[in-house]
């Protein structure tokens, strides 16, 4: 079992300019911005499951990312 991050698109506020998870993810090209829907998208094959994105998202009270088992 391997934990990866998952974005809840309804709770994500990337359309308002939030880039917290994209900024602080330690992996390059791992969290991308869907430029049509303006939501953060996780590239699961690159995610190492460190939960930093969950920490920064929760700290900003958006609570849009959670870890799921794969």
């Amino acid at each position: 079992m391997y934990n990866v991050a998952e974005v809840n698109a309804e709770a994500c506020v990337a359309q308002k300019g939030c880039r917290l998870c994209i900024m602080y993810c330690p992996e390059a090209n791992c969290i991308q911005l869907d430029s049509q829907k303006m939501k953060a998208v996780i590239v699961e094959s690159r995610c190492k499951g460190c939960e930093l994105c969950v920490v920064v998202c929760d700290a900003a009270k958006h609570n849009a990312i959670k870890m799921v088992a794969r």
Binding site: I22, A28, Q32, A40
Partner: peptide, 28 residues
């Protein structure tokens, strides 16, 4: 600048540092 994150391809690819390593944040 860091504003390219998420939309442009970064000049760094899948590296083998530990999950959550602050060094990889700095490197990015």
């Amino acid at each position: 600048g860091w504003k390219d994150f998420g939309t442009a391809t970064e000049l760094i690819a899948e590296h083998s540092l530990c999950a959550g390593c602050p060094e990889s944040i700095a490197f990015r």
